[in-house]
Simulated scan of single mutants.
Amino acid sequence: MHVGLVSTTYRPRRGGMETHVTTLAEHLAAAGHEVTVLTNRDSPDQPAQTWENGARVLRGGALLQPPDPNAVPWERGLFAALDDFAPLADAQVDVVHTHTQAALLLTHMSGLAETVPVVASFHETRPQTEPGGEARSRFVARTCTPTLVLAGSRTFARQAAGFGYPAERIRTVHLGVPHRPRVHDRRAARHFLAHAAGVPTDGLLIALTGRYTPRKAQHRLLDAYKLMATRADCRVVLLGSTNGSDNAYLQYLVERAAGHGDQVTLLTDQDDAVRDLLAEAADLVTQPSTAEGLGLAVIEFMQHGAPAVVSDIDGLNEVVTQDSGRLVDTADPAAYAAALDELAASATLRAHAGRAAADRATRYFGIARSIANTTSAYIEAINAARPAVGAARV
């Protein structure tokens, strides 16, 4: 099967969607499928085409072209990216899987949806706050109905139904996280993390990863940390990408973290090796977000046996249970601190919750399960869109 993935951003950008689409492309290729990714070209230095771990990546550069003085600015802004779809149309894919509303809209505007079945996934956690808000979301649902909607969580499935996508076309397939075998035990990982990123080796390590934006609410952890009874025995590491971050919010966090001395370490734009070391070294992982689609970062740490203390909200309460961590109102600093203290104070409780976390992450959010279910959805979409052609070519 030849799969076309359309994503508004892709590696080397970092974020939940970029991680998911990259992982999906590479694991589909590893399973023997032909994969073509169409994405945006961020700068003239990026090549228009590369092969990355078995997947062909096309980076469209229409928006990098110098403005045509005779062009109408609004028209160029709306339609220029359509020129980037010609190579994907020429690739003769069997199915197109779009990621984000913009990707679905462009796929339909390009005419590709008239000849190829389209599976759509959405990664906008709060689309009502983006340009056009709910009106845009409902417009895309009304005018660009895909063959199937592939929702990465129950939260995304409810969101899609709320915007008007037909319930009979929505399939929930949890986003998958690749299993990374543990290379170091926690003590060794702390040692290497200290050398790589300057994280102190003493104390229990609480980790929080994510873009530095108010939605991720890293400040809530700092509020709770001040109230923790076990604070003197704990170290906090904040790790995030500046890509897509709120610069004013990041500066606010930098200033607050500095007030805690070496008890709080704030890291930006680290490579995968540091992230992997942090996942192996963490005693607890936390996510105090105000909104989440699923919480992939939490799952990555749970795989390594870190209990999770997270906001009791849609998208996170789908991942974490009371057996594998704690669900809490992280807007309440005292309640948040108490949940962290409960696990920080008891090695026995952490060990029990950590085993449950690792089992849950592997059982429900493993990449093999996700790829199998995604492939089944592609075949369903192909057969639904082309009943006269016969069974899908796999």
Rank of each mutant, 00 (worst) to 15 (best):
T8P: 07
H20F: 15
V21N: 03
T22C: 06
T23V: 14
A25V: 02
A25G: 08
A30Q: 15
V37A: 08
R41F: 11
R41G: 10
S43T: 15
P47A: 11
W51I: 15
E52V: 14
R56M: 13
R59M: 10
G61V: 07
G61F: 04
A71R: 11
R76F: 00
A81R: 12
L82D: 11
D90W: 03
V96T: 14
H97F: 09
H99Y: 15
T100D: 15
L105F: 13
L105R: 15
H108L: 00
P117V: 03
V118G: 01
T129D: 12
P131V: 08
G132N: 07
G133I: 01
G133C: 04
E134G: 02
R136K: 13
R138G: 06
V140A: 10
V149F: 08
L150P: 03
A151V: 06
A151N: 06
G152Q: 11
A160H: 05
A161M: 08
Y165I: 04
A167N: 10
R169P: 02
R169Q: 13
T172A: 01
V173H: 12
R180I: 06
R182P: 01
D185I: 02
A194S: 15
H195G: 10
D202L: 04
G203C: 09
G203S: 08
L204P: 01
A207T: 04
R211K: 12
Y212E: 03
R215V: 09
R215Y: 03
K216M: 01
D223N: 00
K226L: 14
L227C: 07
M228Y: 12
R235V: 07
V237N: 05
L239G: 04
D246C: 01
D246R: 06
E255N: 04
A257K: 00
D262W: 00
L266T: 06
L267W: 11
R275Q: 14
A281W: 00
L284T: 00
E292V: 07
G293H: 02
L296Q: 13
V298L: 07
I299D: 11
I299R: 07
M302G: 10
H304C: 06
A306V: 05
A306Y: 03
P307L: 00
V309M: 02
S311H: 08
D312V: 05
I313Q: 02
Q322Y: 10
G325H: 10
G325P: 11
R326C: 11
V328H: 09
D332P: 13
A334H: 15
A335V: 04
A337H: 09
A337C: 04
A338F: 05
L340K: 05
L340G: 01
A347V: 09
L349D: 00
A351Q: 13
A351F: 00
A351W: 02
H352P: 01
A356C: 11
A357P: 02
R360P: 04
Y364S: 08
A368N: 12
I371F: 04
Y378A: 02
I379Q: 14
A384Y: 02
A384M: 09
R386W: 10
P387Y: 10
A388Y: 09
G390Q: 11
